[in-house]
Write a protein that binds this DNA or RNA. Sequence first.
RNA 1: GACUUCGUAGUUCAACGGAUAGAAUAGAAGUUUCCUAAACUUUUGAUCUAGGUUCGAUUCCUAGCGAGGUCACCA
Length: 632
Amino acid sequence: MEQKIKQVILNAAPTLFLGEFNSNSIQLKATRKDVAGDLTLLVFPLAKLMQCSPVEAGERIGLLIESEVPEVSEVASVNGFLNITFSDNYWIKQLSLVQEDPHFGLVPPKSKATIMVEYSSPNTNKPLHLGHLRNNFLGFSVAEILKASGYHVVKTQVINDRGIHICKSMLAWEKFSPLNANGERETPSNTGWKGDKLVGKYYVAFDKHFNAEAASIIEQWKANNFEYFPAEIETEYKRLSAALEGKDEKAQAGIHDKIKELAKNQTSLLREAKEMLVKWEAKDPQVYLLWTTMNSWVYAGFESTYAQMGVTFDQLYYESETYLLGKDVVMKGLSDGIFYKKEDDSVWIDLSAEGLDEKLVLRSDGTAVYMTQDIGTAIDRFHDYPELEGMVYTVGNEQDYHFKVLFLILAKLGYSWAKNCYHLSYGMVDLPSGKMKSREGTVVDADDLMQEVIDKAEELTSERGHLEGMSENDKSSLYQQIGMGGLKYYLMKVDPKKRMLFNPEESVDLTGNTGPFIQYAHARICSLLAKSQIEIGAVAPFEMSHEEKELIKQLAQYPAIIQEAASLYSPAIIANYLYELAKQYGHFYQTQAILIEVDSAKKLGRLTLSANVAKVLKSGLSLLGISAPKKM
RNA sequence: GACUUCGUAGUUCAACGGAUAGAAUAGAAGUUUCCUAAACUUUUGAUCUAGGUUCGAUUCCUAGCGAGGUCACCA
């Protein structure tokens, strides 16, 4: 319809406008709720070209539209805005479009065009936390939205399963795990611990012992005992201590950090961890066995967390398999002159022309860095999936710079798909007490949090829910749907790019702008339809109230909302739309009689409308990974 | 310090450069002989500061103030 109106204006452009006319100056948008009308034309840009007042220009264009577009029933020119109203018939037609399409709003894939969405990508040493929840929910939802907007999607994650940090937890487990009666070290099966939590515990244990060792080394140095250390360490320590003199507190703290760093490098623990990494890279059988065993514990733990989150992956990439990738590409880029070598044989790229710095892509010893790997992995993926057009990386905004550089390098290497790579950069999740810091123990564990919201949902639902006739299984599944629905909605209603505050109390709220509010609207309609005992077929015309027309308008926007959410990679757009729709339905429900309406045409019309609102609510919630129970 | 993101009711979030800046929550008041009151209705309350561009600025530009992030041969 917007197209049609645009066309009418375009056709009349030569007689209407003087001077240069640009079709971009025809701006149409939905009319404000508090003003009569359905669609609004912004007249200001056109009035100039017509050399008359905005009101007069609006009137002239209004007359034109009214006579050319039969669906238009009324036009009104109000200070620079031309408000266009469509006929009731037009809206009935819109409703039947919604009704006739069981997958209304979803676009089937037009081609084989595929997009890969990467999310989660955890560190196998650390159990998942609140930040991962935002990451997973966003990534999963964006994948669903892209699917709905007409793409094939491959969901993936990179599992960060190698490196010095992994060796730390392995070493700590070997060194510090107590032995049980059978002489075994702790395992998930003999302790009952979740695998990722057990490994995480030893990672923390490593840090504790490591810091203690470093502290004792510093004590020795302070006591002037350098017996066990090389001479250059002694010199360096003395140089740093001397530098403390006369500095302010901040500078002193910096120097103390440096001293600590120096001491850490002298610890036996770090040395052993480094030795382990070397053995791992040499595929030492013992280290490899330990590595695969502990990793399998972590994966089992993660799997149950993902199941609770309701997210899935189509393809996994393990860093242990991809970390060697990218080197060849860099070598080739070096000979093509894209990269350059410094005297120490390290390889760099100079991005100063693009306003960035120089960036290392290969160490002086020829080993790969993070960037090298990412280059390799990206290229590898395009080999794995020939239909791949683009990629979405769901990674926190602290890595903005990294991805800027990565995409730039890929473009310089001549990969045309580099421009279709998008960093879905999301803001950090803060707590009312401030930032989450693992060191201070303020991390909110994902498993604990999910359990908490589900427990809360149970508590509240058993108070006010409609649970009669439900089995215990159904009930617990309902609590889960409501709890997780609330949590997901809470984390996704905010613009992904923005940093957000996580308030534990609000996250389990069921009233207001929340997931359960939307689920409630849906459940209410399901119950209404079940009671009506009426099969809903083709849409017949009925006399519409203002509320009903508003609802149809809202429904008709759904396809455009999906496209907008897909192009902005923003589940928040879906979330806000659904809330708006549910709220409007609530108003409609409260003001209009439905089952008790005596006029049967109106009754059927309202039921049809309700059914389609439920359909869209359910569809939209599923794009957010939230389920829509029929009863609650 | 350099680069970068952000600053909207008490609080948490909205608003392609468009009309009187919307919601939620908290506060005040009301609605249940009728379809799920997890609802609905009414009400109080905000664009960090100073300039600029524009018919029109929360939105764009400049400066300042304030908060975060990044600046490793870590990942």
